[in-house]
């Protein structure tokens, strides 16, 4: 085993994580994509996606989780998703009725998932015990 894989929790936790993390991700995506039809909205979807990554991080350690998801990707996704949010807001400002449009609903959902990714990013930064410039 490589030194990276020795970190984290016991073998049982790692195995269970390997089995379940895909389903958690899938469920998160499902909640996000059907958010506009269900009570509570798609916001929870982003959080569930974020939880999947936190799950990986708890079981395997920070390095593995960060290898899956680079900080550059995260930073760009924060920026892009926030800009999509802003686009939706501006579309609302300009008086177009956006909530009837077929295209904007998926865009909303994507933005919401992006916001969830933002949550992961902050969570990763929080739990990182190393210094800030590790990225």
């Amino acid at each position: 085993m490589s030194p990276i894989q020795e970190k984290g929790m016991s073998l049982i936790v790692k195995t269970v994580t390997k089995l379940t993390v895909g389903f958690i991700l899938l469920y998160g995506v499902y909640v996000a994509l059907t958010g506009h039809l269900s009570p509570g909205g798609g916001f929870a979807g982003g959080v569930i996606v974020a939880l999947a990554f936190i799950h990986v991080m708890l079981a395997f350690g920070k390095e593995v989780a960060l290898r899956r998801l680079r900080s550059q990707t995260l930073r760009v996704s924060i920026g892009v998703s926030a800009l999509i949010f802003l686009y939706i807001v501006m579309a609302g400002f300009s008086g177009r009725s956006i909530f009837n449009c077929e295209i904007t609903i998926p865009i909303c959902e994507m933005a919401i998932v992006g916001f969830g990714l933002f949550a992961i990013f902050t969570a990763l930064v929080l739990l990182s015990k190393t210094d800030k410039d590790a990225e």
Binding site: R75, G79, A82
Partner: peptide, 20 residues
């Protein structure tokens, strides 16, 4: 009036994309 809020928000969200 709304551009007073939109302009700094656009800047705030473009900056992480430009990044390091």
């Amino acid at each position: 009036v709304p551009y007073l809020i939109i302009v700094p928000l656009v800047a705030a969200f473009l900056i992480p994309i430009a990044g390091k």
